[in-house]
Amino acid sequence: MYAALLKHEARLQARPLLSFLGIALAVFAGGLAAMLLRVPLLAEFGNVAAIIVCLLLAVGVPAHLLHRYYTSMYGREGYLTHVIPAKHTALYAAKFTWAAGVWAASLLLTLALAYGIAVAQTITAGGTASDTWAALATALANANQTALALGIAWIAVGLLTYVAQFGWVVTFGMEDRFRSLGLGGPVVVWFVSYLVMQVVTFAAMVLIPVGVTPDFSELVFASFLGELPKAFANEDPSFIPLGWLPVILVALPVYVIWTLHSLKKHTSLR
């Protein structure tokens, strides 16, 4: 049933996503062409247009995915989704896979497009395409490898956490207890959970005595509490706190399990 559900997502969303992508790429290509051909006035405009396409891709795709989750689960299409003889775990797995996959693909595409803009800018400034590649390679080589690996892992975990978080926000926010709020349910749930997460993350960062030296060479087991005055005074603290990391790592399974529970026990179509 998981495969059928995934196929269903693809069947319904392939066309709108591809047409959105087609328009975005056409605008992007036009913008880049204007830059490379050094068309007076239009070249600047093309640069801006290409950057806007990147931003729209980064924001538009997750917005679309969030909207589709809501309409297919709790809009009128939910009347089909929830009579399908699938386990709630299969339903959730299909939704999750689709959202995470499409979003990851759109982020990779955004990166590629950003690289394209960088190439075009280098060429416009009198360089060659290989200059951009060389600059990127140097930057990557000079970067702290631990920090780089950590950063990529953080982005990957962060993406999954965001998918789980927004799934939870909609699922929990559409429970019966928030019925009187209507669509405000998910909004309120998102806002309150955002505040809670800020407080919890800050508390964990301060209270869990784990950190790393600025050059990522060794772990520091000390409370960040003593470093706070420096941080507020805009000076560099002597180590980077990592207490927030467990919060992120715990948040992901909490969101997933809570959403599954909500789906099984509290689904209430309106």
């Binding site: 049933m1 059928a4 196929k7 269903h8 069947r11 319904l12 066309r15 709108p16 009128r76 299409e77 939910g78 009347y79 089909l80 009579v83 399908i84 003889p85 699938a86």
Partner: peptide, 30 residues
């Protein structure tokens, strides 16, 4: 759910599909 065929008083099919696609969807699910 495998035994119950429910016809709600809601329009539960997506606007963008044809009846032919809807038939294929039902074939996948039921």
């Amino acid at each position: 759910k495998a035994m119950v065929s429910f016809l709600p008083d809601q329009s539960f099919l997506p606007d963008t599909v044809s009846a032919r696609t809807a038939v294929s969807m039902f074939g996948d699910f039921f």
